[in-house]
Amino acid sequence: MIVKLHLKKEIHVPVDAESISPDVFAGKLVEEIAELPLWKGNRKVPLKDVFGVEGISGKVTNELVIHIDGNLSKVQRIGSGMTDGEIRIAGDVGMHLGVEMKGGKITVEGNVGSWLGSSMKGGTIEVNKDAGDYIGAPYRGSTEGMRGGTITIHGNAGTEAGRYMKKGLIRIDGDVDQFVGIHLKKGAILVRGNADGRAGAFMTGGKIIICGHLKSLLPTFTIDSMKSKAKVEEEIIKEPFYLFIGDLAEHGSGKLYLAKNKNKHLETHEKLLQ
């Protein structure tokens, strides 16, 4: 069962599309879906004003696939709180994609805005290009970070990825900006590219693996040992790593793995191991 949405014309004001979710679509006819409410700027409009709708909807959420076409970079909150089913986005998409999602799958061909999978509890998100800031991070002021699920970014990511994460996995194939894994409690973040610094600030547990260059290490991390590999779930990365423990300012025991070959500036720490 696939429901296809396509953007009718380019939009210039933010559109809040909380109702685009398999949970909401399930059990509705295509005509009913077209009437679902969206917020376009400060106005409530039916979905059909913004999107063309076609396809066949299903009764059960887990059989439902929503396919969306067009430049959605102004469209926010798609798949908010979804529990099952699938959303495929063919282009770019805006902020708050998959907020508080509990299950199901979201795939994006293009780039996504900030707050991807904010406070998510389960399910998987895959992004083929870049993601913005605050991946998996809770809303401002809240400490209820990611509690499960997997986010994979094949491009680069912004600042504060995985803030307050308690469980789950974030994989970033490209580079990350500052403060990756800030306030990390548990769970794992794997960065295959470089990190811009301040990785793991305030972390008290969990694991951050950076396979590239880390611009600067926080002084509140101490070297623990050298490792010949690092492990994330089933995946094993075979290359030498420095293992640092921190953030000591928070009495933390989080693990920060930094690739030895890419981080020559950390060589001096090796002396402390002798």
């Binding site: 809770p138 809303y139 401002r140 002021g141 809240s142 209820e144």
Partner: peptide
């Protein structure tokens, strides 16, 4: 002011 998460 302290609690935006309380409001949203």
């Amino acid at each position: 002011l302290l609690r935006p998460e309380d409001h949203y």
